[in-house]
Design a protein around this nucleic acid. Sequence first.
DNA 1: CCTTAGGTATGATGGATGTCATACCTAAGT
DNA 2: ACTTAGGTATGACATCCATCATACCTAAGG
Lengths: 105, 105
Amino acid sequence: MGEKDDNLEPVDLDLGKVLTALADPHRRRVIRELAQADTGTERTCASFRLPVSKATVTHHFRVLREAGLIRQVDRGNSRAAALRREEIDTRFPGLLPLIAEEISP
Amino acid sequence: MGEKDDNLEPVDLDLGKVLTALADPHRRRVIRELAQADTGTERTCASFRLPVSKATVTHHFRVLREAGLIRQVDRGNSRAAALRREEIDTRFPGLLPLIAEEISP
DNA sequence: CCTTAGGTATGATGGATGTCATACCTAAGT
DNA sequence: ACTTAGGTATGACATCCATCATACCTAAGG
């Protein structure tokens, strides 16, 4: 249960993995922008314009996905990232507002 | 403003440092036990019985102190650690319950 | 005085992590 | 068909980090 990156139930979210994922400012920026956007918003990895190489962007999104914070849906050409808002809010209420309200560093 | 480990104002608490500090299970356990205890509780570092060497315990408590999560008051022989509950709750409301409710891993 | 307990300082070490360059793949546009 | 854009895979590299052993300090109790 819950090994396939996607299809994570709220109960599978691990606080350690989540906090580790959110310890990085780039990854926090991604989650912050998704949390501030409308629920269900899907964005490509590139749209965040992280100031790192493509390979590093892929790395960061993998960490976020494996922590259960985002879902990446294949869209042929690209992959859209969406916040797992419900699961996060269910398991860790109050976490997203904490990230969303950070003053962008 | 806020370089002297102690005397940190809530506004000085940095989310990145706080999340990094809480990413470690040993440090999370310390904060969890302090958060579950009565407000104002002071405990020695040794009383947490972390399964690591004394030097490593000192390291973990330094990280917690520099993140602004605890205050260490000198008591001659030993040093007592106390949660900076007010500052944390003011700056990051909802964070402590998140840590406190984790099922002890 | 000696011992013990709680902490710190320092240096070493192995593992995790953020980063990149390079090469490659796929789909869309021209 | 060629090019471009978004992503991934792999391997390398430097740095950070958790950990320890050792040595040292201070205060309390015998």
